[in-house]
């Protein structure tokens, strides 16, 4: 198992390395000198050079790449061109919104999807199966930002149960923070829950058709006992893959949703950075999100090894 995970870790580290090169190269293509852009046309040469030095732009590109990567490894993401504050501090603040939001949505999606998928699979062809499948079909088709607008109208504007946007900060209180993330989390979770429920149902149905379920029935297990004792854990393997993927997509999807709810997360930050051409921020946030995707992929690999003994002894 250690070897299997070590190999996965190495391969993912390599992916990250190449990804960082790609991101750096793309951003470096941008024409124009950042320092002149920031200072405006009338700035004198001396100030410009000083600013270039301050931003670390006065060295060759390979050196800058190296500085960027080694800086990130030590938690130093550089200095924002616009705000002149360390990017790492900005990111840290914003992460406290984006990350909990993605986790919250993932939890919601799993909590909704598991029972729905299991009910649909065990009562295949029944009214509940057909309705669950119908709702999930619709859930996949609804754009989450549109769903968010509807949620805001109903629950914030009409019913006034939640505020329409903004984030009070965790220091106000955990539940106040959570409450302000509830509508966005639901908006994010709906399509993912629909997908997950479908995967759960189909994977469970596949597993229920396996030979070892028949063997379990021949031992005297009831259909229900066979489901809980044997089918569920086996059915979980493809479901894990999806959960892993979803976390990445929830992080990315949060970029859009944060804009609707005026949440001070990474998404809002990255759009402001694009408009202000604060490329170091764009560069770092994209790298961070790629890192999150890759890290979650690794966690899913670990989960596989825990669930499936066949992987534990493999190479």
């Amino acid at each position: 198992m250690i070897r299997y995970l070590a190999r996965r870790l190495l391969s993912l580290a390599l992916t990250l390395l190449v990804a960082s090169v790609v991101i750096f190269l793309i951003i470096e293509v941008v024409p124009g000198d950042t320092a002149s852009l920031m200072l405006g046309v009338n700035a004198d040469e001396e100030t410009r050079l000083a600013l270039r030095e301050e931003l670390g732009l006065d060295v060759s590109k390979p050196v800058r790449y190296f500085n960027w990567v080694s800086g990130m490894l030590t938690g130093d993401f550089g200095i924002s061109y616009t705000y002149r504050t360390p990017v790492s501090e900005m990111i840290a603040d914003r992460m406290m919104v984006s990350f909990p939001l993605a986790l919250y949505a993932l939890a919601l999606s799993t909590l909704i999807a598991f029972p729905a998928g299991i009910i649909a699979a065990t009562k295949r062809g029944s009214f509940s199966d057909v309705s669950i499948m119908g709702v999930t079909q619709l859930g996949v088709a609804i754009p989450n930002f549109w769903f968010a607008m509807i949620l805001v109208t109903i629950f914030a504007i009409k019913l006034r149960w939640f505020s329409a946007g903004g984030f009070p900060g965790w220091e106000v209180g955990f539940f106040a923070g959570l409450k302000s993330l509830t509508l966005p989390a639901f908006a994010l979770a709906l399509p993912q829950a629909s997908i997950l429920a479908r995967v759960m149902r189909s994977s469970l149905l596949d597993t229920l058709g396996e030979d070892f379920i028949r063997t379990a029935r021949a031992k005297g297990l009831s259909a229900r006992q066979a489901l809980w004792g044997h089918a569920l854990r086996n059915a979980l393997i493809p479901v894990l893959t999806i959960i892993g993927l979803q976390f990445s997509f929830l992080l990315a999807g949060a970029i859009i949703i944060e804009n609707i709810f005026f949440l001070p997360g990474l998404g809002r930050m990255i759009f402001q950075a694009i408009t202000q051409r604060d490329l170091i921020v764009v560069e770092s946030v994209v790298m961070l999100l790629v890192f999150a995707v890759v890290a979650v992929t690794f966690l899913v690999d670990v989960a596989y090894a825990v669930v499936d003994p066949r992987l534990r002894r493999r190479v």
Partner: peptide, 26 residues
């Protein structure tokens, strides 16, 4: 069906053709 569950495995055992898939891999 409930009574039958008590018969299966207790009074009647069954063996199948495909041993590779007849056991729960986990």
């Amino acid at each position: 069906e409930e009574q039958m569950c008590r018969v299966r495995g207790r009074q009647i055992g069954m063996v199948f053709q495909e041993p590779m898939t007849a056991l729960n891999p986990l």
